[in-house]
Amino acid sequence: MDPMEVFKIEVTGQEEFGAKKYRELIMDILQGLGLIRSIGRLYVYVDILKPYFAVYGLLRSGIPPLTVKDVGDVMKVQGGYQIKINDEEHMADLLRVLGERYGRERIEQPARDIVIIASDTSPSELMVANLEAEFLQDLTDALVRVAPEGFRNRRNIMTKDSFFFIAAEESLTPEMVSEIKGKIREMENA
């Protein structure tokens, strides 16, 4: 079962096999980069005779920034706050952010997953990483990987809740872009 609400792929001509395989390929790549859960609807249109490749997707609700309380448990202790880190993936970002906010001399790390800050203000709401920016970078990377390799003329329009990616062998013309937009709209309305 697809983790997405809608996933449509359309390829011109007698290319049923190509459409089926590209569906698997897109799933593999999106899953590999951990993006699949953030995409709600995905429409892929390929015209192999022109040739061009287009993807339009709607994103699920925005990803909130990662804060200190998301990566660990924050507790008030004597002389400051203690963070017990649960998610080590963002450890480097966390230490950098704490260093910038409180100064290195006020941060102590007695164990690998324990950080103590000598401060009266809680670090709970400090932003550790902007996941949305990371997500958009990964998404662009995924789209470039998915598109056939020879399609080097690309356009990628990203908004807060959607993305529209076109790749073609020839230069992209306004007519081509509007034609593709029309095709995608037809797929949406079908």
């Binding site: 290319e15 190509g18 590209y22």
Partner: peptide, 14 residues
Amino acid sequence: HDAAVFIFGNFQEC
């Protein structure tokens, strides 16, 4: 070489 294997993709037109 003695033989070659050319690896292409999923679209028969290509």
